[in-house]
């Protein structure tokens, strides 16, 4: 790693101030950033650790939404969200491995927008709101492409607010070496319709499968997907699976998620 300093502010305001330094970068749980630094793919002058910011910790119920602080680790979501939003808790319980879940944070996952990360699928399928130090952004407007989000320089994901669906399920077809999904599908059924978000598959990152949403909003059953097909155009082609395979998996995993949620 190149040399850098680490600051550990205790408030969002101090973190934002610290991030104004040249080449400063926020540090969540570091489960992606630290390997990136080791590979010398990033060279910040300073890391601003968000782990000590109390106001970004923990889970609360806010009306009919679940609000999760940006610095909340996956292990906490896996246990504390279980009674209110079991689909989301189950997703969190399957990220990485136990030690990774004790460090990795939801804010880090959302802000990094890895094209195979799990949380962006939950945020997009739930119609979540991404709360930052300056504004609130709908998930539909937040995830812009592979490793690309609507975040400005120095802007921090302080919380994510999830509307709680009537039923939900996340199905992840694991790439066993990395434990990231080769394809992951989050299905969320709300009173006014169904949302389906897909991760791991597209070169554009997480996306909504709108044809499946329309079909499932009519009939919430795996059969509703009969006749639908995902095009392999724009799907990720790599040594783990080609675009055609990933496109096929999207339909299969969506069907499984609907079955598990019904």
């Amino acid at each position: 790693m190149y040399a850098f300093d680490i600051e550990r502010p205790t408030t969002v305001a101090d973190a934002v101030e610290a991030l104004k330094a040249d080449e400063a970068q926020p540090l969540g749980g570091g489960q992606t950033l630290i390997p990136t630094l080791k590979a010398r793919l990033a060279a910040p002058s300073k890391l601003v650790s968000l782990g000590n910011v109390k106001e970004m910790q923990g889970i609360s119920i806010d009306g009919d939404t679940l609000r999760i602080g940006g610095a909340t680790i996956h292990a906490t979501v896996a246990t504390e969200a279980r009674s209110r939003y079991p689909g989301l808790a189950r997703l969190a319980s399957k990220i990485g491995d136990p030690a990774v879940r004790n460090r990795g944070t939801i804010g880090g996952s959302i802000a990094n927008n890895d094209p195979a990360a799990c949380y962006p699928a939950a945020a997009l399928a739930s119609g979540a709101t991404i709360i930052t130090n300056t504004r609130q952004v709908a998930a539909d407007d937040f995830f812009l492409g592979m490793f690309e989000t609507a975040l400005d320089e120095g802007e921090i994901v302080t919380a994510v607010s999830f509307p709680i669906p009537e039923a939900s399920n996340y199905q992840k077809f694991v790439q066993p070496a990395s434990r990231f999904p080769l394809v992951g599908v989050f299905v969320a059924k709300f009173a006014d319709g169904v949302r389906v978000a897909v991760t791991g598959a597209s070169e554009g990152g997480v996306f909504r499968w709108t044809e499946a949403e329309q079909a499932l909003s009519g009939t919430f059953a795996p059969d509703a997907l009969d006749g639908l097909n995902v095009s392999e155009d724009g799907m990720i082609n790599d040594l783990h699976g080609d675009g055609e395979y990933r496109a096929h998996l999207i339909k299969i995993m969506t069907g499984r998620a609907v079955k598990a949620a019904s």
Binding site: G30, I34, P35, S49, G51, A99, V100, N102, R103
Partner: peptide, 27 residues
């Protein structure tokens, strides 16, 4: 591995298992 895959570096921090190759000392 030094890439947070293998777990040989697992220690407990405040009672929780973590990979000590993927956490800074100052944290």
């Amino acid at each position: 591995c030094d890439t947070s895959q293998c777990g040989a570096c697992t220690v407990h921090v405040d009672g929780k298992s973590v990979k000590s190759c993927t956490m800074f000392a100052v944290e």
